[in-house]
């Protein structure tokens, strides 16, 4: 099974406490929903292999605790991540307002700048919505992120969110590594050093 995996991607889920980060992850990896999921302590970790456009990618997903106090630890997990899912709760405006803080933190601690960010507005199954979809869209556009609204409870948009993120990562050159092997006649791209005998790009007359 691992043989045909194209790459392993590290993905991080962040956001305020209680917005449903672990529930989204549980829905994605196990396709279940547990209304009584314990609050995450520190970081948690799950693995899932998915196939996007015929490419199999193994996802190592780190789920983080949203509490302020745990936050001193999470930045260290940003290291080497290719994708970040930033979650807010559409029924709690304060979780949306805090997004700026999270982005700041991302910017400060991310070791690379081409990392793919996705904004997810969770809990759209609930009726007491406080954050409009357009607001989420606007925020995502402003910070060049992917955007989707989802519900871990009803399963809406969850699969799609992860797939979209992975597709984007795979499309970003240099974000993940792979060895491209030439097939058949080996036409290696070769750079001729100076003094290679044959003329390189430039020959003076002398």
């Amino acid at each position: 099974m691992d043989e045909d995996v194209l790459t392993t991607l590290k993905i991080l889920i962040i956001g305020e406490s209680g917005v449903g980060k672990s529930s989204l992850l549980l829905r994605f990896t196990d396709d279940t929903f547990d209304p009584e999921l314990a609050a995450t302590i520190g970081v948690d970790f799950k693995v899932k292999t998915i196939s996007v456009d015929g490419n199999k990618a193994k996802l190592a997903i780190w789920d983080t605790a949203g509490q302020e106090r745990f936050r001193t630890l999470t930045p260290s997990y940003y290291r080497g991540a290719q994708g970040v899912i930033l979650v807010y709760d559409v029924t709690r405006r304060d979780t949306f307002v805090k997004l700026d803080n999270w982005l700041n933190e991302l910017e400060t601690y991310c070791t690379r700048n081409d990392i793919v960010n996705m904004l997810v507005g969770n809990k759209i199954d609930k009726e007491n919505r406080e954050v409009d979809r357009n607001e989420g869209l606007k925020f995502a556009r402003k910070h060049s992120m992917l955007f989707i609204e989802a519900s871990a409870k009803t399963c809406d948009g969850v699969q799609c969110a992860f797939e979209e993120l992975v597709e984007k990562i795979i499309q970003t050159p240099g974000l993940w590594e792979s060895e491209n092997q030439n097939k058949g006649v080996k036409l290696t791209h070769r750079e001729e050093g100076p003094g290679g005998g044959a003329c390189g790009g430039y020959c003076s007359m002398l």
Partner: peptide
């Protein structure tokens, strides 16, 4: 550290153990 945490796997026990390992701070 993250390697150790990841090695615990994704089972319920693994997750529990992982949380416990990180609960010293809590």
């Amino acid at each position: 550290q993250s390697e150790v945490l990841a090695k615990l796997g994704t089972s319920a026990e693994g997750a529990h153990l992982r949380a416990r390992m990180q609960s010293a701070c809590l």
